[in-house]
């Protein structure tokens, strides 16, 4: 593919409508590699011909092992091009923030000592290629009305579709988060590591940004992505960017919420082995209900029964895989606070 560099514009016009959509692919940042290849972060902008309106940025692929955002961005682009008359604002899509990681299925940036791109923001203009890349991405997104950073539970986790917000900015963004129609909203605790993430750095710089997390399930992407796609269109409608048909926004009071550590229940393995999960993601469980078992195949023994420590909604669950003591197996939104 060589349609990532430079600027390419296309008009999508439907007969009988005055407005058209301008599609513009541009390069946000690019670094030459030793053997004739560029490490390029590209943006595809969809905007109405008459300009104006709010601006939404949708980013994904910062972790190269998270593929879910590819289909989400594709589907959004398809609908915009199919219904151009409904676009009244700017939608900037960044489908491949870590393109080489995506190519290799590698979470980190696969250069040098392998670094987590989502711990390198806000970046610096004259730093390493990664730092300069992060800086350019930040500069490109600053000033947007909203930035959505789409993640996915890696191949080892399944997740409900959720909005994650930093607890320091959560109250300000709460009502707007409901427009995304998530299955859960989570206030992520204030840890120093968050400040070096894309959303953390953008929020610190005054641009509202949210993380969308959803299920990976590579074998069945059409099962898990529609909720995210519909949620984003619903949000676009609330922002005045989209006038097409969307689902109705969810009422805030209907969305399960984890607002503090007291409302969150983490379940971890205490013994090493192989985790065999029950199908609990998205289900309400009672205290003591079986979430899965840890097995020892060599001895033919069950090492540990993983029971729900509290009643609540299972919104994150580890898949069938090897585990260590401390490996996160599930997250529950408690029915009752501790």
């Amino acid at each position: 593919m060589n349609n990532r560099g430079g600027v390419a514009s296309s008009l999508f016009e439907r007969e009988g409508f005055r407005l058209a959509v301008i599609k513009e692919i541009s390069t946000v940042a690019s670094v030459a590699m030793p053997l004739g290849e560029n490490w390029t972060v590209s943006r595809c902008r969809y905007s109405p011909e008459d300009g104006g309106g709010a601006r939404l940025c949708i980013a994904t692929g910062i972790h190269g092992d998270e593929m879910m955002g590819q289909l989400v961005i594709y589907a959004i682009a398809q609908r915009i091009m199919k219904e151009p008359e409904h676009l009244h604002g700017v939608v900037d899509m960044y489908p491949m923030l870590n393109p080489i990681g995506l190519d290799m299925g590698e979470r980190l940036v696969p250069f040098s000592t392998r670094l987590d791109m989502n711990r390198a923001f806000p970046g610096v203009p004259d730093g390493t290629p990664l730092e300069a890349m992060c800086y350019s991405i930040m500069q490109d997104m600053l000033g947007a009305d909203l930035v959505l950073d789409i993640h996915a539970g890696t191949m080892k986790k399944s997740e409900l579709y959720q909005v994650r917000m930093h607890e320091t900015t959560a109250e300000r963004m709460l009502s707007g988060a409901a427009d995304l129609c998530p299955q859960l909203i989570w206030y992520v605790p204030n840890k120093p590591a968050f400040n070096a993430t894309l959303t953390g750095a953008l929020n610190a710089a005054g641009t509202l940004a949210l993380v969308l997390e959803a299920d990976e399930r590579r074998r069945r992407p059409y099962v898990t992505t529609p909720a995210v796609i519909e949620g984003i269109f619903c949000k676009m409608k609330a922002m005045g960017i989209w006038s097409g048909e969307t689902i109705a926004p969810r009422r805030l009071e209907d969305i399960p919420m984890v607002r503090s550590e007291e409302e969150l229940c983490r379940v971890s393995a205490t013994k090493p082995g192989v985790y065999v999960p029950e199908n609990c993601t998205g289900r309400e469980v009672e205290r003591g209900q079986l979430l899965g078992i840890v097995i020892d195949a060599l001895n033919g023994e069950k090492v540990e029964e993983i029971l729900a420590p509290a009643a609540g909604l299972v919104f994150s669950q580890r898949s069938y895989s090897a585990v260590y003591p401390g490996t996160l197996l599930a997250r529950l939104c408690r029915k009752e606070r501790v």
């Binding site: 987590d116 971890s268 003591p325």
Partner: peptide, 26 residues
């Protein structure tokens, strides 16, 4: 492997740690 391979995590980005957290935090 430079990082903690099962989680792909850098232990030197996990301090002060969490005794109840993930393996690298522990």
């Amino acid at each position: 492997s430079r990082l903690w391979a099962p989680e792909n995590m850098d232990i030197n980005r996990r301090f002060p740690g969490d005794a109840q957290g993930a393996t690298t935090e522990r």
